[in-house]
Nucleic acid binder design. Structure first.
Length: 423
RNA sequence: GGAGAGAUGGCUGAGUGGUCGAAAGCGGUUGACUCGAAAUCAAUUGUUCCACAGUGUGGGACCCGGGGUUCGAAUCCCCGUCUCUCCGCCA
């Protein structure tokens, strides 16, 4: 959500930002509604002032004066009821519209059409040349009896999977390794709800726009989170933090749920695009200062890169183009890991800066050194997400016979297993 | 799932129709005392919107959230959310 004052004074900037991101938004209507709202509010506050004055004076009046005052109060009440009804209608419409106004991206974000227009800004690692025909992760998974997608489809439907044996262990290992790495950086570890109310979804900017892609428990009006950022950010909703305690750095491992509505036929094979996955997520809440925000963004990116480097996974970092930058994001970097079966880099991490966007919606503020109150900035980045990360992990470390070497850093988390072999 | 109790400022907690944005205590801030600290004393201490003006004055809103009754609601009524107690169920 953007500040209405900011919108009023920066219409062109916001229009341009919306166009770069490819969002349609009727700012002119918003201004018209806000004008009406201001006008009504002025009228209403005047009537209320009269009402308060009238009611306050009433107990001291004589009986005859009192009857007049009650009559006057009734008239004021009638006028107020009428105006307040108009205000409620306009205010609801305005609030709804404001939920769709995109945060303008930072300067220098290219417009673009889709992820092919993302700009590569860094590459790490060497793309391996196999001396044999490498297998895809799903082939390896079946061969080694560690991944099964047929049995899960039977009882859980499409885009589901089962990890078994060392496959399941590998997921535990890589997520735990990521948690431990982030903990070394001084983050606070959370275990959070994955079922939340719509306030949390709206507050973090996923609703109303992303509702279609969210699993809903209608009976209870609860929703399954698509990312733990929802819970980690909402944890601080309606709070006024002390600047002394900023930045707040949190990390959690949680299950994430995505309906993947509208992706039928896309990435249907293997573990790439699934309805449910495990993600270690980093969230930072910091001062309202674009330089601090930028520093935190770099730090989040760095943490995730370190994890991939430790795992020996070649990757590249890309700057998302406007079309790929979400409603609230001012900047997004994607880390794409090399996946031999795709013969391409593919997204495994997503690092976002949202500035005040979520803070305004979730009402997260802090008191600065002078006692002044500001909205915080929020940022988030994936530390590791499984099973997607298992794709490069298995494919890159395979041997000719289909066995898979376990990276050194994961072996302690695998009870010492250094290689997954066919039984 | 059944029965009951409750939700008030940073915290504890008073307030059951007007003089209440809200007592009191604790905490915080500032000042005095002190070499300094503690103790003591004094003052001050919520968030937010609007108008004018410029850092002040006037007005509006906020006592869990949303409706309602009333000239007037923290207070009465209804709905919701959450917390606690007892029973049931349960990893």
């Amino acid at each position: 959500m953007l500040d209405i004052h900011y919108i009023r004074h920066n219409i062109d900037k916001i229009k341009k930002g919306a166009s770069i991101k490819g969002f349609a938004v009727d700012l002119d209507l918003i201004i018209v509604l806000d004008d009406k709202k201001r006008e009504l509010l002025y009228t209403i506050e005047n009537i209320r002032a009269q009402r308060n004055q009238n009611a306050k004076a009433l107990p001291k009046l004589t009986n005859t004066e009192r009857a007049d005052a009650i009559q006057k109060g009734k008239e004021l009440k009638e006028a107020l009821t009428k105006e307040e009804a108009s205000l409620a209608t306009i205010d609801a419409e305005l609030k709804e519209l404001l939920l769709y106004v995109p945060n303008p991206p930072l300067d220098g974000i290219p417009a673009g059409k889709d992820d092919r227009d993302n700009v590569e800004i860094k590459k790490w690692g060497h793309i391996p040349q196999f001396e044999f025909q490498p297998k895809s992760h799903d082939e390896l998974g079946e061969l080694l009896d560690i991944i099964d997608v047929n049995q899960s489809a039977k009882f859980a439907g499409s885009r589901t999977y089962i990890l078994k044996n060392e496959g399941a262990l590998l997921e535990h290992a890589v997520t735990r390794f990521a948690v431990d790495h982030i903990l070394k950086k001084g983050f606070e570890l959370f275990s959070i709800p994955v079922i939340v109310r719509d306030e949390a979804m709206i507050g973090t900017g996923f609703f109303p726009l992303g509702k279609e892609d969210t699993y809903t428990m209608e009976k209870d009006a609860l929703y399954l989170i698509g990312t733990s950022e929802v819970s980690l950010v909402s944890y601080y909703s309606n709070e006024i933090l002390d600047v002394k305690n900023l930045p707040k750095k949190s990390v959690t491992l949680s299950t994430c749920f995505r309906r993947e509505a509208g992706t039928y036929g896309k990435d249907t094979k293997g573990l790439y695009r699934v309805h449910q996955f495990q993600k270690v997520e980093q969230v930072i809440i910091c001062k309202n200062d674009i330089n601090v925000s930028e520093t935190m963004h770099t730090l989040l990116l760095q943490n995730s890169e370190e994890i991939l480097q430790a795992l020996g996974i070649p990757y590249r970092v890309a700057l998302a183009c406007g079309a790929e930058t979400g409603l609230g994001q001012v900047k997004k970097n994607e880390i794409e890991s090399w996946m031999p079966s795709r013969n391409a880099y593919a997204e495994t991490h997503s690092c976002s800066s949202l500035h005040e966007f979520q803070a305004r919606r979730s009402n997260i503020r802090y008191r600065d050194e002078e006692g002044k109150i500001h909205f915080v900035h929020t940022l988030n980045n994936t530390a590791i997400a499984s099973p997607r990360i298992l794709i490069p992990l298995l494919e890159l470390n395979q041997n000719k016979d289909g066995s898979v070497n376990i990276p050194k850093v994961l072996q302690p988390y695998m009870n010492g297993i250094s290689m997954i072999k066919k039984k």
